[in-house]
Design a binder for these strands. Sequence first.
DNA 1: AGTTGCGTCGATCTATTG
DNA 2: CAATAGATCGACGCAACT
Length: 491
Amino acid sequence: MSSSVPFHTQLTSIMEVLMNAAVSEICELVDDGYAVLHLEISRSQKENDVLKERLHIMETRNAHGHGKKSVGLAHEHSIRNHLPVKPVLNLETGENRYNGSPMGKELNHLCSDEEHPSKENEDSVKQSCAVMKSMVKEMRKPGCIQIKEERLEGTISLQNYPMIKGESSVESGADEDKRDVIGHTQIDSLFEDYDSHINADQESESTFQKLQHTNVAHHVQRQGYSGLWTPRSTETDSEDPACSYAAEMSPTRVTAHTKQQRQNSVAEETLFAVESHNVKPEAAMLDSGPYEEKYQSSSNDNYYDNDSSNDLHPQNSISSEASENFGNIFSNSQENMRENTARSKVGIVQRYMAGHTIQHRVGKREKRFVCGFCRKSFTCPKYLQSHQRVHTGEKPFSCSQCGKRFGQAGYLKKHQNVHTGEKPFVCPLCGKRFADSSNLIRHKSVHTGERPFICIQCGERFAAKDNLRIHLERNHSGCSSAEDVMSPSIP
DNA sequence: AGTTGCGTCGATCTATTG
DNA sequence: CAATAGATCGACGCAACT
Ligand SMILES: [Zn+2]
Ligand SMILES: [Zn+2]
Ligand SMILES: [Zn+2]
């Protein structure tokens, strides 16, 4: 009986079956991955709605409870402590990471959202939800890659804090000594003092309005540009910011490209002439989705990689426990401040305390205008033109004092502080003044003791990315990998 | 046009170690 | 004292926003 079928035939058929199974499994995995990406995109709209709703609720509650500050504090604190999943914030991108087993919880969230899907997303969401469930089983197997997910909860309350210039003069110097002794508790109480000036009623509305323009940065793994490549529009003609200036070209500039441009060197093969028929449909789809990918202009930086490759780094596990104390610092930083009531420092305190990158620059508009030098895309021809000065070296704005030239008027304005000595940004904790807002933001780590930047080579932690950069340069011979978590590391 | 906020580079200060 | 490495900050580039 069995002799009628030669052994090798049996073997062949078995192999065939196995191969087919393997192929179909691979196909399924590919499809699943595709579905996940789709889901990420389609989810955005719903997340925004949920966000708005939650913010509204929180604002309302805060407005009610504002008379009794401690109550409001406790309330918000409890909200934070009851977040279903601990967010781990990336200081640089503002993105949240989830460790442990992120997929399960996130999936529940996703699938509960299925009850109210937007019309255009309904099908894909349902489909993806089913796919995701099946994927979870796979994901939970040991050694399987965990897909980073992000949530909006836990980040809302920290967003949208305005930077307010400190106009009142603060007697500094004497306070410098406080730096080392101010702990988190003291920072909190300090912050409470400022907070007492908040006008919650006035602010809740504007906060909400701001949120409407806010989107959470959504990082999609990408391999290259995904911009809609269009020929430069004639609208560009109407934009000529440099018309009243003698455009000056720095001869070295065109050839002396930045690292970023080096990274984009592919694009330099096709200067200017990026035709619309070069558009790749897939890329176009990605870019026109509800989420706008934040192009990491800082991706040139070779010691810290915001790119997807790093998201999968096992060191992410560090962040889970490190995020434990995160919420404590930010107790009552709900409302925005008004300049007229809070005056100077209050706004900066909130920003100061927010402690993570606010991703509210993520627009929804389509980036139709593409740089022919580097293929970076912009929503408006004005931005494109401004951007292209990076390549051309045009610097229409010059300092009347020292003659230094700048590509944007804003650079010049900042630069003027060098001559005027103006330092409008004041640290509320030590009174130190800064001419540049970002320097004040950075300065905060002096007081908070946060060390979110971790060298994955040796595990040493740093308060600033700069420190890590130097560390890598000096100790690991320019090694490029680093990890950061958004949490203070209090020993 | 002006503003804002993120980001980086390079310089200097400071503490530690041999 | 010199070398080393971390901490801090001034200055400015960039791009998205008002
Ligand atoms: Zn360009
Ligand atoms: Zn300070
Ligand atoms: Zn290291």
